[in-house]
Simulated scan of single mutants.
Amino acid sequence: MGTWREWTEADAARWVAAPDGEDDKYRRGVLGVMTGSIEYPGAAVLGVEAAHRTGVGMVRYSGPRSVRSVVLARRPETVTMPGRVQAWLLGSGIDAGHRPFILSGDLQHALASGVPVVLDAGGLDLVGTHTAPTVITPHARELTGLLLSRDIECTLEEVEADPAAWAERAAAELQVAVLLKGAVTHVCDPDGARFTVTASTHWLASAGTGDVLGGILGALVATHHDRFEAEPWAITRLAATAAWVHSEAARIASEAWEGGPVLALDVADHVPVVIGRLLRG
């Protein structure tokens, strides 16, 4: 196994940028989001919220009508009509074992678009069905299930005991970037990039924070959509940056409550503070 390096604030600062006078919402980046379900509408709300707060040009949401309603109630800036997309966030809050036929078709259509993709939760099983730059964002249990589905023998206990080795194994076997979530998040790719992000607060161990991370990452990927043709490896650095921003937003949110617990929306609410600090250098 190669050497892992902790991703720093200086590293993250290289992967955020403020819009300039030449930018519009399309040049800034359009993130397509296909997340959430009738059973888990909150995943869509959290991911969309986080994406907006990261500074993407537009979020274009596709999902069940009832979920669209709650997304729009929270973030009326969201566009729900089909159209141009420069990156996709797929799978959060979706049960891969009970995907409706129409949703399965929509997911495959998104994957066939050729734009960079973030696959989370109920979209992880779709890895390998497309060739665009891709990052998967499992936790240890999800990674174990994904590897077993590909006839790679492992147990949850093994993955939890050596997350670095199993993240590397997944990247090599699946030929995508891997962001393995945990108290120490491991981000790697088949080309040998290996980064860690150590959580600044363990209050992140709560429901919905992974959906926020997906929204941050999706927004960063969409914002940098024009770099992927020349720099396909950029998705790994963006994944590490998203994990760092996520961790730092949680720390700031907790400090606002004297070190107390934070909820997923608290983390999303503090993302602009982190982005602003990175932009100031």
Results as ranks from 00 to 15, higher is better:
6 E>G: 00
6 E>P: 00
9 E>P: 00
9 E>M: 13
10 A>I: 09
14 R>C: 14
15 W>E: 07
16 V>E: 02
18 A>E: 11
18 A>S: 10
22 E>T: 15
28 R>S: 14
45 V>Y: 08
49 E>F: 14
49 E>Y: 13
65 R>F: 09
69 S>R: 15
73 A>Y: 10
76 P>S: 08
77 E>W: 08
83 G>E: 05
87 A>C: 08
93 G>H: 06
95 D>A: 13
98 H>Y: 05
105 G>F: 07
108 Q>F: 11
112 A>N: 11
112 A>E: 12
115 V>T: 13
120 D>C: 08
121 A>G: 08
123 G>Y: 05
124 L>S: 09
125 D>R: 05
126 L>P: 02
127 V>F: 07
133 P>K: 07
138 P>G: 12
143 L>N: 03
156 L>G: 13
156 L>I: 09
157 E>P: 00
161 A>P: 01
165 A>F: 11
175 Q>C: 08
179 L>H: 08
181 K>P: 08
182 G>Y: 08
184 V>E: 12
207 A>P: 03
211 D>P: 09
213 L>N: 03
215 G>N: 05
216 I>D: 04
216 I>N: 03
218 G>W: 07
223 T>K: 13
223 T>I: 13
228 F>K: 06
234 A>G: 00
236 T>S: 05
240 A>L: 09
259 G>Y: 08
260 G>C: 11
275 I>G: 00
277 R>Y: 07
278 L>T: 08
279 L>Y: 10
281 G>Y: 09
281 G>M: 10
